[in-house]
Write a protein that binds this DNA or RNA. Structure first.
Lengths: 228, 228
DNA sequence: GAGTGGTCTAGACCACCTC
DNA sequence: AGGTGGTCTAGACCACTCT
């Protein structure tokens, strides 16, 4: 049989790209397509569902299935642990805890985490090394209210790996940007002030409250790459 | 009935997070789970397949289903058209074609596109505007060998939108990085040389050959954001 | 109200891979 | 060789939403 759901997906995609079904067009419903391809409706459904997930089709009950007008392209990136990232390059990973203290965070941090003003957080500064060279400068705010006690020695285990193992989280967001190296970052990474650094910021939440906000300043030359 | 595939996904996720099924653990097979949840095996399959796709489970025929040791987190981001991106902010989009010429590209460009040395490409420089202010400085290499003729006036329609409408492409990759503004970028964007710019680079391919390589230098302050 | 996609079932066969 | 996940079928009911 030549009609697996992947075959059907490929054929539908071909018709869209060949403009037999132009953008905005209503395509036949699942039952008709199943008839045409000589397969069960569930098989057509699987194929069309995948295409809708990829942003190629738009589906609504009763309204039917349309070719997306603006094919929003989606990219998926993996967010590995820094240790994995370093080891994947064939380098050895290490890190140094530069600073740890408990303090009241600045207002922007508290508000991004949705915390009352005056709540105390743990602040960490960590430098990650690849083959002994500075790789990432990490600044992190931790909400001790939602962490299991006792806390570990963050000089021995990196905060991220400890969190992964001991706190189950549900949602979060990631943002990427570019910023000039400030004095603290320049010193830690061993680069000139003002160099362009690739910045990753992540916020992590349990169902109830914020767990952590982390900012990673990557050494110059860092790239995030993905396949579409 | 409380056992939709989403319920089952949620319950499996709960057991993993509660460490009833710790990382690396082999979980019951689909048939046993179907029995336990009182549903069909296909329903369990759907739930576990989604979790495997999200990187929470690892599945292999005969070997069974295991809780992933290193839950590689995946983030999905949308890659909109620049025009959509500007309009989504409630601003008006415009652009200026600054430069167009046909020339032999530098070696790094040719090799990234997998072209023979000496092949001629079209080179474009475009400045995108949001409410009249510089937003993105775009430099683009186009492979005329795979483009439908005649080519449009790229001063009237942006290259990206024309490509979307007239060339069906199959694969590509995207990379993000941070770089200091060079003289050309600084002038076009109206910022000081050396400012940190967020850079997006995309390569696009048909099944046979490279279509385009585009580099977007975003104005300072630009962020790419996503939900996990 | 009615047409469409979303999901579930029970059963079957197959591809793959570990044992 | 046999167990596991991957997929397909034929049918059914349901949820949504457009008319």
């Amino acid at each position: 049989m030549i009609n697996s759901w992947e075959d059907i997906r490929a054929e539908v995609l071909r018709r869209i790209r060949a403009r037999e079904w132009p953008p905005g067009d209503l395509i036949p419903n699942e039952e008709d397509l199943a008839l045409e391809f000589g397969c069960a409706r569930a098989t057509v459904n699987r194929a069309l569902r995948e295409l809708a997930l990829a942003g190629v089709l738009e589906r609504r009950r009763k309204a039917g299935t349309r070719v997306a007008m603006l094919p929003v392209r989606k990219a998926t990136l993996d967010i590995p642990l820094i240790r994995q990232e370093v080891e994947a390059r064939g380098q050895s990973h290490g890190f140094q805890l530069l600073l740890q203290r408990e303090t009241v965070p600045p207002v922007p941090v508290a508000s991004r985490l949705g915390l009352a003003a005056g709540a105390r957080l743990i602040y960490l500064e960590t430098l990650h090394l690849a083959d002994g060279q500075p790789f990432v400068f990490e600044t992190r705010w931790l909400n001790p209210a939602v962490l299991p006690q006792p806390l570990p020695d963050f000089g021995q285990i990196s905060a991220n790996e400890w969190l992964l193992a001991h706190v189950s989280y549900t949602t979060g967001d990631i943002a990427f940007s570019a910023e000039e190296a400030g004095p603290r970052e320049a010193e830690a990474l061993g680069v000139a002030e003002g160099r362009a650094l690739f910045i990753t910021e992540r916020t992590t939440w349990t169902a109830e409250a914020a767990i952590t906000l982390v900012r990673l300043a990557h050494s110059p030359g860092y790239r995030v790459q993905t396949m579409v």
